[in-house]
Design a binder for these strands. Structure first.
Length: 276
DNA sequence: ATGGTGGAAAGTCCA
């Protein structure tokens, strides 16, 4: 159940691919209320900025930053601990298509002293598809940016959280044999993911939830959720200074239940007091 | 039974 945070937890930051904010606003509000989440990184809002239902969140005490260009993609940050220095896209974020469009897949802001990025990594579709090469390039440029941020300030508290569309381990999919030759598990994608760790970042959900079968996504079809045939693709890299503050990580599996659920569930980080 | 889910420029794309 939620709300297990011990008394040391002074801030909760979470990530959630909501698969349309307009069809899920009530569920998001209910989640914020029961979990006590202070900062929520949202992916797949599936709307333009002028369509984002900001009012109910503002009435609940959250400030909103969103970027959405069309009915696809769309990322947002909700924060009740301030939202400063909003940045749409990361430096050298690749575009896609002709003409090149810098899709709405990354938004960052400083919330309660933590630089939080809401990320929606390109899906890739199938190996060798143009979307697959775009995905790898997108991850490489993000890694470069992340390395630069940490080099510029080794004490930086920052999180790269979202839907990475990568299952880093074989245990992050219910049937590795079924995924052979597909995206999300290819060596190139896993290498692109591992590169962030070599740049000094720590994937904190793994650190605190190392057990297999801790999925964050289940396809809507084929009774995937009741059978717990899921994938672990919603992850959070943290800088050393932030990773040191993470006391617990929780996957809100219950959020996948019932009518009107997203196919992803929230992943929550509990942060201890800032010792610095 | 040629679907099986669900969301989005509404017809078809996306995951």
């Amino acid at each position: 159940m939620l709300g297990r945070a011990d008394t040391l937890a002074v801030m909760r930051i979470a990530t959630w691919n909501v698969n349309s904010i307009r069809s899920r606003a009530d569920r998001v509000l209910a989640f914020l209320e029961r979990s006590g989440t202070d900062v929520l990184a949202i992916q797949e809002t599936k709307c333009r900025d002028d369509q984002f239902p900001a009012l109910p969140f503002e009435l609940a005490g959250y400030e909103v930053a969103h970027v959405g260009l069309s009915q696809w993609n769309g990322v947002a940050l909700l924060s009740r601990v301030g939202i400063e220095g909003v940045e749409v896209g990361f430096p050298d974020q690749p575009g896609f298509g002709d003409p090149l469009v810098r899709e709405a897949r990354a938004i960052g802001a400083t919330c309660g002293g933590v630089r939080v990025w809401s990320l929606y990594v390109p899906n890739g579709r199938v190996l060798d598809d143009p979307h697959y090469h775009y995905k790898l390039e997108w991850l490489a440029r993000l890694r470069d940016a992340a390395e630069g941020w940490l080099e510029a300030d080794p004490t930086l508290q920052a999180a790269l959280m979202g839907d990475w569309n990568i299952a880093p381990l074989d245990t992050d999919v219910w049937d590795p044999a079924l995924f052979a030759g597909r995206t999300h598990v290819s060596p190139a994608e896993r290498e692109a993911f591992a590169a962030f760790a070599r740049a000094g970042w720590t994937e904190v959900t793994r650190e605190h939830l190392p057990e297999p079968g801790k999925y964050t996504y289940w396809d809507y079809t084929q009774l995937r959720f009741p059978r717990n045939e899921g994938m672990r693709i919603d992850l959070a890299y943290a800088t050393p200074a932030l990773a040191a503050r993470v006391t617990a990580v929780e996957i809100d599996r219950n959020e996948r239940k019932g009518k009107g659920a997203s196919d992803h569930v929230p992943v929550i980080l509990d942060l201890a007091d800032d010792a610095a």
